[in-house]
Each structure stands twice: as structure tokens, then as C-alpha cells.
Design a protein around this nucleic acid. Sequence first.
RNA 1: CGGGGAUUGGCGCAGUUGGCUAGCGCGCGCGGUUUGGGACCGCGAGGUCGCCGGUUCGAGUCCGGCAUCCCCGACCA
Length: 416
Amino acid sequence: MKYSQLFTKTIKNVPADETARNAQLLIQAGYIYKDMAGVYAFLPLGLKVLENIKQIVREEMNSIGGQELLMTSLQNKTTWGKTDRWNSKNVDVWFKTELQNGTELGLAWSHEEQITTMMNQYLKSHRDLPAYVYQFQNKLRNELRAKSGIMRCREFLMKDLYSYSRDEKQHQEFYDKVSESYQRIFKRVGLGDSTYFTFASGGAFTQFSHEFQTLCEAGEDTIYVDKKKKLAINKEVLSDEVLKQLGVNKADLEEYKAAEVGNIFSFGTAKSEQIGLFFTDAEGSQKPVVLGSYGIGITRLMGVLVEKFADEHGIIWPDNIAPFKVYLASVGVDKKVLEAAEKLYEELQKAGVEVLFDDRDIRPGEKFADADLIGLPCRLVVSEKSLAGGGVEFKKRTSDNTEIISLDKAIKRLAE
RNA sequence: CGGGGAUUGGCGCAGUUGGCUAGCGCGCGCGGUUUGGGACCGCGAGGUCGCCGGUUCGAGUCCGGCAUCCCCGACCA
């Protein structure tokens, strides 16, 4: 992509009503646009980031047997009535609307009931189980207070996976698999070292649920981390009894602020019974399906990445997440320079490297400032100076060092 | 939902005890000089001052109501 073709541009004056670091940087650099409190549009750069995150999640979900589908945002009232969760006293984040004939509808804040009701049509026999389905879907939640930029929105993108198992044993095996796949995901997006498997409150069916909490000052949760055991306990369930049960010493715990980037839940069979999701087992008797639910907040994850990886100049994307791998800038107006830059741009693309080519006729300082702000992992600069030195200047976003390397070497290095 | 703060061109802000053509910076357009860390000069476009009502000869400025945004708290499978 040539920068001159990109419709967004960076801005110097950030909207004053944004104090969250993630939103400030993302707006300033042209990744997102704020429409209302807690409602953000994702612009070309931002969408590429989301897609990169989604692709990693998708690969991991597929690798454990998940099948992707897409549910709807309009939901019928009846489905939620079965579990008494249409009632706004039980679920206070509903957006509700109605058809022109007066029929009430809900806007999807979750899809548990909807997808489980649908499964009643497909999961009839023990031969149909287990089944694992997931989606990337916008969730609409009437939060009392949106905050922290894209970390707590009224409309946000979530990956939600649902498991349907014959019995507890089959369920637990998958539950553990998801847990492992989540560890891989957070590692791949660059958060492996700061994300902890965390014990949190369970609900009606289990004592605990499990969260994946990333250490982050902008997060809303407080967790207690045992770094040796590589686990954490959410403040909401911390007690002497729980410590004893988990075999954790109070002295080994450190308190941190953290952001919940993922969670996994066991539902048991109660919801199946309410909704009427039964299967026929090998002996011919009716049994309720065992449910599990597994979420990752994709947009929140993006916000956490910005919060964690940024400096005073701008964003610093992890390699796997960046919208482009390379920021290529030409410096000066010399014809040879422009031609060399253009050629390098073409060849990098041929080699399969995603490049943002800053071909604008502006001063170098502005290009460098934008390169830092946008936060791509590598910067290449073609100038009279670099050509005289035998090639192109190479710099990593995370380092202040630059080196001049030949054009061929640059292509080779980046194509790896 | 409780408390606090805010709302003036696209963005950031100033605007005195109410006073006549509402300013500045960034950005934008045109012309020129520049070109390795957000350059400079000149000219120019762009605003019913969040909305509704009131007080007044006169309201961006005072009063009342509403809306929106931000922060703190509460809430948060």
C-alpha cells in the first residue's frame, strides 16, 4: 500500500476527551474512529490488525476441531425466555428493539442461548457429539459506562466458541485443550509472558471459571499472581480456603492490575435442560448435552496490545499483529532515490512482504514521526545517503540503531 | 445509576464586570522557498459559540431545563 493512497492520515491534535492511551494512539495514527462513547469504527489499518488477530485465533480454533460459523445480531425473545435471561433484571446489558408489528427483539449481547437452541436441530444422537463451533461476532452491550478506549465498548468484536459434549469427561478433555490453545494464542500475539491462567468465579455449575488475564495497568481486574506456578487468582475469589485448595502460598502471590482477554466456562447440563438440548445415547436413553463456552475479546485484545507495546513516539506492534511488516520511506526528491524506492517496494511485494510505502512528498521528519506512530516492526529508508552507502537503511521499531544494507539483503531479510 | 469536570470551524484552545466585524495554533486550499526527526513566508476558505427556553436595549458570556462526552465510584460470564 502506498501511503499516498491511504485515506487515513495521522493527526497531531488528539481529541481531548480521549484519555485512554490505546484510543489516543489508535485515533492519532488512523486505526480507529470514534462514533460515540464505547463505539468505534475500524479503519483500513485497524481492520488489518483485527484480521491478523482473528487469523491467529482462527488457526488455533480450527486446530482443536472448532468449526467457524456466523450467528445473527437480531435475536428472538423466546429463546432467552427459556433461561429467564430476557428479563432485564437478570441481564442488565440488553439493547432491545421491536419489529413494526410490535414483536420484541434483542440485539445480541451473547449467543449462548441462541446457538444452543439452534443445536437442538443438529445434535440428536451420541454420534453427533462432540461438536465445537465458534464465530467472530459483534456483541452489543448496553454498558452503564463505556471506558478505557476500545477495552470496554458497547459494541465490540468477540470470538466465542461453544462445546457440546456427551459427558463430563469428554467436556473436560476439550476444556483443557481450549486452555492450551489459548496459551498458544496469547503467545503468538506477543502476550505470552504477561498473560496468566486465572481462577475466577464459576457460577451455578462449577466452583471456578478460568480467565486469561494480561498484566496491564489499564485493566479493570485485580489478580494475584504466583509466578513460579504460572497461575493467578482473581481478587473476587481470593480466600484462605481457595489458596489451600489450589495449593498456593499467600507469600508467593503478587498483586497486579490486569485485563481479561479470554475466559472459559463450564456450564454443565442445566442450560441444556432448560433449552431442551437432549441427545440419545448408545443405550437409547435421553441425556442432556454438556456445555462449555470460551471467549476472547478481539477488540479488547487489540487495545491491550497498544497499552503494553508503545513508547513516547507511538505504537509498537508485535510482528504477527502489525498491519504491515515494513514502513518504507523515500527521503528527498532525487529521481534516483524515488526510482530505487519504487523498485524496492515492488520487489518486496513480489517477495510477499506487506509494505506501507511512504511515497508522499513531505519532509523526512514527518515520515519518521509517522513511522514511529503507526508502529510497524521495521523501517526502511531509501535516500541519497543510503544509496551512497550501498543500499537502504534498516531500522527496527524497537531499536535506535540503524544499518545500511543492500537492497537484495533487505528483501531477503524481510521475506524470511 | 451516584459524584465531579467539560461542550466555541475538522482537531487543540482563548474569549475580561454581558457590548457592537468571535480570535489563536494545528490541519485544509493556492503560490513560493525548503528536504535525515512533525520547516518557513504570503494569500485564502471554513463557525446559526451542543440543543430548547428565559432575563436584557443587547447573550459565546447571566438563569433554568435537556443532550452529549470524559473521569472516579457502583455494576460487569
